[in-house]
Design a protein around this nucleic acid. Structure first.
Length: 692
DNA sequence: GTAGGGTTAG
């Protein structure tokens, strides 16, 4: 009896704690703990750990930590359980700190510890530690363990080191759904959408298992490619396979449909959900916002507030502000901003909220006001805020403020090609070619490369990519002819090329030629060539669409009575019969009287001392750039032919996102190069048989 | 008793 007694007590405590964990019975569990103390029971390490886990499962990390601290003896499980609890609740620094304490205590980590701690090593600072942990993993020979391996590859992918992630993945002796999803999602989150789909397709052929997380990641990649048909196929596939419609998957579907141009389908998914998270609302609001449907944004936001089931967060308010800005509801947007800074929505105002207002003012042409508001913000302005103002200066051809802002941006972000391009374009608009040359020279000096402009169009399940002045597309001759033909026809309707969009110091004929080579025009022409009358054409561009291409598309839509949908980096443009839903939003549209009054009310009270010296840009000579004196008046400037990489690089990618899921059990994808190689092989074989 | 991948924005 003397031996059985303590065993029974131990077993009793274990059973009780198990039940408390299972039934989430906090009070009862606390009574069990109190009983241990009262009876001076000294539990073995196993029971101490169970007690600690009971507290972590109930979200009481402080109590759990006290249990850990009081334990006379800890083992790897007790350390790992606490580290895991910190990690899962988002206390990364506490988790890392405890891990270091564990190492100092000379407890050997196991595969559970490594898998947990690697998942905590995210972000730039985490990556440094993650690499050190990787050394330990190798030392302890856990690199091939599947949980550790997937956590390791995910750590690399999240740090943007996708090649290292892929290497870890390829070296795994076995793969499962989590490791496969981690690498696919790694590509998708870095915007390497084609690579993500290609890998997904390959792994599927190799027999990979997929679950709702895999499909959510695949949908992210398809959203990036705006591959609506393939997104639909994935939707159909998950329905047929009866994959559980967890909220994460539904959120991904909402996002896919809206990024692929179909807010109606996105809304259908949204309406069908039995449970919604704040991300569901945000994805739907963002969808309306990007489509410029301001009224729907406001209505949905009101519904969210009325329902009171889910509280808005900072992203919600960002979506609504941006929706008001893009949907022509500046007054409502400014009103909302007023409410945010008054704390009416329970969310601290963030940089992004201020950014939306700066953007609104900038597009309305109130550049000086926007500049002053940036200076008075309670935050250190980010390059994105200055970038928004620089863009507005370019639209409104305000070289004075633009030059100042551009100069600041080049100092802040010397590696961002976009800033050089906008500044250079601003100078080009003003005919200041010497300054254009200086900016481009600086860009070369710093080896900054502009992202080449690309446009996509999907035809018969094939996603075609065009670059500006594409030189490799097998049907480029026909496409260029079609663009020229379209230009000729719409000129008769009143289209005048906007030569200010060709930022080169060449004659007008050359400028027009450059404009005709823009990738979105090529994709649009190709879309028209390959689709039946009346079928909408959907084009996607990786950068902002230029004013001339936008105008071109408007005339084409009228000429052919075709609906044209254009998704650029910023938003959607739905063009029907020559009218775009964006309402030509970059054009100068002053604020309404009511909005202007609201703006004055909003910002007059915040006119505290500026954190920066008042800009003395008016004192600078007009040619000011990088402390160079202006060129002597009237001096002939020699044009240096400086080709933008998008004109140099004429790279073609055609991804054949193959046969639908209806025909084959799984989504397939093959590269154009692969198909070409097959065709060549077939041709060669045919020639050989003929010569025989 | 302890573990890995996921959805909005940026």
């Amino acid at each position: 009896m003397a031996i059985r007694g303590p065993e029974m007590v131990f077993a009793g405590y274990v059973a009780l704690l198990d039940e408390c964990v299972e039934k989430r019975a906090l009070r009862e569990g606390q009574r069990v703990h109190a009983h241990m103390i009262k009876t001076c029971y000294l539990p073995p390490v196993y029971l101490w750990t169970r007690l600690m886990v009971f507290y972590t499962k109930n979200g009481l990390l402080g109590d759990a930590r006290r249990v850990l601290d009081e334990m006379p003896l800890r083992n790897v499980v007790s350390w790992t359980a606490m580290i895991s609890a910190y990690s899962q609740k988002g206390y990364a620094s506490e988790a890392l700190d405890l891990f270091q304490q564990m190492l100092r205590s000379e407890t050997e980590p196991n595969e559970f510890t490594f898998a947990t701690i690697l998942a905590t090593c995210t972000g730039a600072s985490g990556f440094q530690l993650g690499r050190q942990v990787h050394s330990l993993v190798i030392k302890n020979n856990y690199e091939s363990q599947i949980f550790v391996g997937s956590s390791l590859l995910d750590m690399y992918a999240k740090a943007g080191k996708i090649h290292e992630a892929r290497e870890v993945f390829e070296c795994l002796p076995e793969r499962d759904v989590v490791s496969c999803t981690a690498i696919i999602s790694g590509y998708a989150q870095l915007g390497m959408d084609e690579e993500a789909i290609e890998l997904f397709s390959r792994l599927q052929r190799e027999g990979m298992d997929s679950n709702y997380v895999t499909y959510a990641s695949v949908l992210t990649a398809l959203s990036g490619l705006a591959a609506l048909n393939h997104g639909r196929q994935v939707h159909g596939h998950v329905l047929r396979r009866e994959v559980p419609f967890y909220v994460v998957l539904q959120n991904s579907l909402i996002d896919m449909y809206s990024k692929c141009g179909s807010v109606t389908y996105a809304r259908r998914v949204f309406d069908s959900m039995s449970e919604r998270t704040v991300i569901s609302w945000n994805a739907m609001l963002m969808g309306y916002s990007k489509h410029g449907i301001g009224r729907q944004v406001v209505e949905l936001f009101e519904l969210m507030r009325k329902e009171k089931k889910v509280a808005p967060d900072s992203v919600t308010l960002l979506a609504v502000l941006s929706g008001c800005s893009h949907g022509g509801l500046e007054e409502r947007g400014l009103q909302l901003f007023h409410e945010i800074i008054n704390g009416e929505h329970g969310v601290q105002p963030e940089m992004g909220h201020y950014g939306c207002v700066i953007d609104m003012l900038g597009r309305a042409g109130q550049l000086q006001e926007a500049f002053e508001h940036i200076q008075r913000m309670p935050f250190e302005p980010t390059p994105a805020i200055w970038g928004s103002l620089l863009g507005a200066c370019r639209v409104h051809s305000n070289v004075d403020i633009g030059e100042l802002v551009g100069h600041k941006l080049l100092e802040l972000e010397p590696e961002n090609a976009g800033n050089y391009v906008i500044l250079s374009n601003l100078y080009a608009t003003a005919g200041r070619w010497e300054d254009v040359r200086n900016v481009r020279h600086l860009m070369k000096e710093k080896a900054v490369i502009k992202e080449p402009g690309r446009s996509w169009v999907e035809l018969d399940q094939v996603l075609h990519t065009f670059h500006a002045s594409d030189r490799l597309h097998p049907r480029r001759g026909e496409v260029f002819e079609k663009v020229k033909d379209l230009a000729l026809k719409i000129k008769a309707l009143g289209y005048v090329p906007d030569l200010s969009c060709a930022f080169h110091d060449v004659d007008d004929e050359q400028k027009e030629k450059i404009l005709l080579g823009h990738s979105e025009k090529l994709a649009l022409a190709f879309g028209l060539m390959g689709s039946a009358e009346g079928v909408p054409v959907r084009v996607i561009k990786n950068l902002r669409i230029c004013v001339d291409c936008h105008n071109f598309a408007k005339f084409v839509s009228k000429l052919y009575a075709r609906e044209i949908s254009l998704r650029d980096k910023n938003r959607f443009h739905h063009i029907v019969n020559g009218i775009c839903t964006c309402g030509d939003y970059w054009a100068a549209k002053p604020l309404t009287t009511a909005a202007a009054a609201l703006r004055r009310r909003l910002f007059s009270s915040s006119s505290g001392p500026s954190r920066w010296a008042t800009p003395g840009h008016e004192e600078r000579p007009k040619g000011y750039l990088f402390n160079r004196p202006p060129p002597p008046p009237g001096q002939a400037r020699k044009w240096e032919d400086w080709e933008l990489p998008c004109y140099v690089t004429s790279f073609l990618t055609i991804v054949i996102l193959g046969v639908g899921l209806n025909a084959k059990p799984d989504l397939t994808i093959e590269t154009w190069a692969h198909q070409k190689a097959l065709e060549r092989l077939q041709m060669e074989q045919q020639q050989m048989s003929e010569s025989d």
